[in-house]
Design a protein around this nucleic acid. Structure first.
Lengths: 120, 120
DNA sequence: CTGCATGCTCACCCCAGGGTAACCACCCAC
DNA sequence: GTGGGTGGTTACCCTGGGGTGAGCATGCAG
């Protein structure tokens, strides 16, 4: 069971966060989202270069899932060499917007304790 | 490397989302956050009952990490039987607030494609 | 003495998600 | 014919996060 198995949340709330968490649950998904937000209409290789450390396999599978989730749009041009362009859908843009407060929280937070712990 | 290994994000943005994602990265953390938001000052056992499916081990370790991250506050009363109360810190409350747009996105989203796919 | 209730810890196992690397089909430049 | 660049796929391996179940310290009710 990879989903959060809650037909009704703790006390009846639909909550919705778990839905969102599933969609952005991959290791690189928020970064892909962010990259596509900053650089609309990128090709596979460009995205790969924008995300140092990601492997082709993982990038491909993440993009595929995000496409299935309707947050990225994929356009394949029938050329040689092949060209594919990825962009955010409207829903993806809204997701990105919804992530901004979280990003702000992350940036503002008062010197997280566990970061020190990890560094040490 | 469990962190997202980005001294500077894709193109120089600090981004901050990855920080937040680390903090809420556990399977049950957002639900704990939510539960503590709806029911402030809950005991371990109560929390457990609020999150059907979570095991003691995982709940304990998640609470521990969240405490280390400064988003939950733990108060242990020297009684018998032991009593421990968990609550959100100010930072935790802010995190919860920051999650609301995400929750809204999750609730509003137009019939996610992969949900159907999973059901089928 | 037994059981129950609390809030954990410990030892163990399992599997999915992610990493590694090779390969494919296509065409062009050399 | 060899190499490069495109956007992938396939096979395999490996780690760690989470699940399972037991145990522990304590005191009270029965």
């Amino acid at each position: 069971m990879t989903t959060l198995n809650r037909p009704g949340a703790p006390d009846g709330h639909a909550c919705g966060i778990d839905t969102a968490m599933e969609v952005i649950g991959g290791k690189w998904k928020v970064l892909i989202l962010w990259a596509l937000h900053e650089h609309p209409y990128r090709r596979f290789g460009e995205l790969r270069r924008l995300l140092p450390g990601v492997t082709e396999k993982v990038l491909a599978s993440h993009l595929r899932e995000m496409e299935a989730d309707g947050i990225v749009h994929r356009v394949s041009y029938d050329e040689v060499p092949p060209r594919v362009e990825y962009s955010l859908t409207e829903d993806g843009k809204r997701l990105n917007d919804a992530l901004q407060p979280l990003a702000a929280w992350g940036r503002e937070r008062p010197t997280a304790r566990r970061l020190a712990e990890r560094a040490g």
